[in-house]
């Protein structure tokens, strides 16, 4: 009996705690940024739980120039945008590309990377696509069709992995799935590479920057192949995401990015983390 009584008391107590914990007022002046913490080299997690990477360094500099206090939390990609819409945090910095569909629900800052997207394969598979090192703009019809046909021919009947709900997933569904390529979507980005190495996938698709981070660790066994796609469903570069209508924050961030681009800071960061320049001139 004493057990039932005390457990009931504890239930009541927990309910009371839950209620008082519920309203978190946004008077806290610190801006909260969300990131995945698992998208090298943009954002990664150390064993002690701290976050690091290109975007974290960039955010630090942006905050200094725009003059705001901030903290970064990690959040799974599933529900990342929903959390922003719901106001769980003020902005997302997770290599999110600007697309028309996303602009219906959120707003973006100026873009900070414009690298395009390409394919990764294992060397031992012998699979190689045409046009490696070239750029294809999806808004230009004729070159796009030629490039797609060449790729589809090589990939027909094969399986390509991609991170779910990304521009690359959109691209594959629009251009390659109708031509007999099997698309497999993963809830977490790094799992694509894991399954590529395990031999479950014939190719993986991701942004050029993300693939280069993967290749850095696997130069012996893997390589990038095929042209790099830009424009159209591939969007207009990765940017900070803010809530719809939060122009104040978007403008502050954009102004800071612009000044970082002007004085070369952004380019230096890009060189430091990617070993190349993937940042645009703003």
């Amino acid at each position: 009996m004493t057990l039932t009584r005390s457990t009931f008391l504890r239930a009541a107590l927990a309910a009371a705690v839950a209620l008082t914990a519920a309203p978190v007022l946004a008077q806290d002046k610190k801006l909260v940024f969300a990131t995945e913490g698992a998208f090298p080299p943009f954002n990664m997690t150390r064993p002690d739980g701290t976050l690091y990477g290109f975007e974290l360094d960039m955010l630090d500099e942006v905050a200094k120039r725009a003059g705001f206090e901030y903290e970064v939390i990690s959040q799974a990609w599933d529900g990342m945008i929903q959390g922003l819409v719901d106001g769980k945090y003020d902005a997302v910095v997770d290599s999110v590309t600007i697309t028309g569909k996303r602009l219906e629900v959120v707003d973006f800052s100026l873009p900070y990377t414009t690298g395009g997207s390409t394919f990764a394969v294992m060397k031992e598979s012998g699979l190689e696509l045409d046009g490696t090192g070239t750029f294809v703009d999806l808004t230009e019809e004729a070159p796009t069709e030629a490039a797609i046909n060449a790729i589809a021919e090589k990939l027909a009947g094969k399986t390509v992995g991609v991170h779910v709900a990304t521009i690359q997933a959109d691209f594959l569904a629009t251009y390659l799935e109708p031509k007999g390529v099997t698309i497999r979507t993963y809830p977490n980005g790094p799992d694509v590479y894991q399954d590529l190495m395990n031999g479950r996938l014939d190719a993986g698709m991701a942004s050029v920057t993300n693939i280069s981070a993967f290749l850095e660790k696997n130069t012996e066994t893997a390589m990038a192949t095929g042209p790099s796609f830009k424009g159209g469903v591939m969007g207009a570069g990765a940017a900070f995401v803010v809530q719809k209508g939060n122009a104040e924050l978007a403008d502050k961030i954009s102004a800071a990015l612009k000044s970082m681009s002007d004085d070369g800071t952004l380019e230096a960061l890009s060189n430091q983390w990617f070993g190349m320049v993937v940042t645009p001139k703003l």
Partner: peptide, 9 residues
């Protein structure tokens, strides 16, 4: 508002 509940809650 705005209201939020922590991940724990």
């Amino acid at each position: 508002g705005p209201f939020d509940i922590s991940g724990f809650v």
